[in-house]
Design a protein around this nucleic acid. Structure first.
Lengths: 190, 190
DNA sequence: GTCATTTCTTGTCATATGGCAACCCGCGTA
DNA sequence: TACGCGGGTTGCCATATGACAAGAAATGAC
């Protein structure tokens, strides 16, 4: 069983046998830089556990500009929950920023595990709880932290992003223009 | 069975009998304006379904200023998921802005339902999915909408808030100062 | 290697918002 | 009635960021 799966689904209620079953529901997949895992308007039928690489999520602005909504890095779950769990078209697009290796699990397989392994639904609830917390922190950061602080924080938490993502896309994630980000970088380098 | 419970837990997989069991796990409670449902530092042991009233959630700033993180209105679930599901102290405080009526369900009772009624854990996942979406929208709004637009949107979606909450607390929810909000209101009244 | 495209930086000016302080108003209370 | 106080508004000035445009640097295609 791939190490990445065991560590991603770590939970006190999940036995080694449970993990075996969970692992068996995942298929290994690779994707090239620039390719999309999910496009706006499509309905998701699976989510992905990212073994290595970098994936970006974005939505389109009222006038067609991309706004980056998320960066996914090693060990994280690449997913658009609304589309997958409400079975509706996604507003977000998922695109690989580097060649990536991931483990896909289809909705049906997930559903079967969710209702047959108690520890798995516990794990799921915990995952949601943490996601919700992270999103709340992000909203709070938008309110109480300066753009400079948000940039430094992102650099610290996801340094890979700096390496593979154009500033413009980082800027939209931070809620500023690429021009401002450029000035912030200049100021920091001082 | 209280109407509010049946409608809050509406889900195709939940039978009338399921709803009976769910309802039986809730206790009716009232709270006076100004009282707290959960204080920063306490660990939540229950969540609440709000039948009528208005509840506000806030965190404290680095220098002690309140930042409003949420308003809960009729029919919504009043909860601090991180504290309840990770069994850790809450960073948020929940305070009643008006006299309110709510239905409380304790963690243990929730847990029992979650693992015995498949439709209930489905419902829970859907609730999380929607919350996550709402939080993402909020982050996006902070990025792409002006303060004026955010204010108008809040007025439209939760008009009760205007009625019972001081501008200062609304302003912190919108990510601006009360001074700015006052100017925005002036401009809108124009 | 050359050309085209994308990415990043910089300058100028406009605008939104903040910080601070003064002030006004309504309301409860001594 | 007078006072104190919380809530809201306003004026003045500072600052952060945006909009737009030009140019420099890096990247990719052929």
């Amino acid at each position: 069983m791939p190490e990445i799966i065991a560590s991603a689904y770590q939970h006190p209620l999940l036995s080694p046998e449970d993990l075996q079953k969970i692992a068996a529901s995942h298929q290994r997949e690779t994707i090239e830089k620039g390719k999309m895992l999910l496009k706006e308007g499509e309905t998701a039928h699976a989510y992905y556990l990212l073994q290595s690489g970098l994936v970006r999520a974005y939505v389109l602005d009222f006038d067609g500009h991309e706004i980056t909504t998320d960066f996914f890095s090693d060990g994280e779950i690449v997913i658009v929950p609304t589309s997958l769990f409400q079975r509706i078209p996604s507003q977000e697009t998922l695109v690989a920023m580097t060649d990536s290796i991931l483990w896909r699990i289809r909705f049906d397989a997930f559903q079967a595990l969710y209702h047959s392994i108690p520890g798995f639904s516990e794990w799921g609830r915990l995952w949601f709880t943490r996601q919700l917390f992270a999103m709340k922190q992000r909203s709070l950061d938008m309110i109480r932290e300066s753009a400079t602080h948000r940039y430094l924080k992102l650099m610290k938490e996801k340094p890979q992003v700096m390496q593979y993502v154009p500033l413009k896309q980082i800027a939209s994630y931070l809620g500023i223009t690429d021009t401002s980000l450029s000035r912030i970088r200049k100021e920091i380098a001082r």
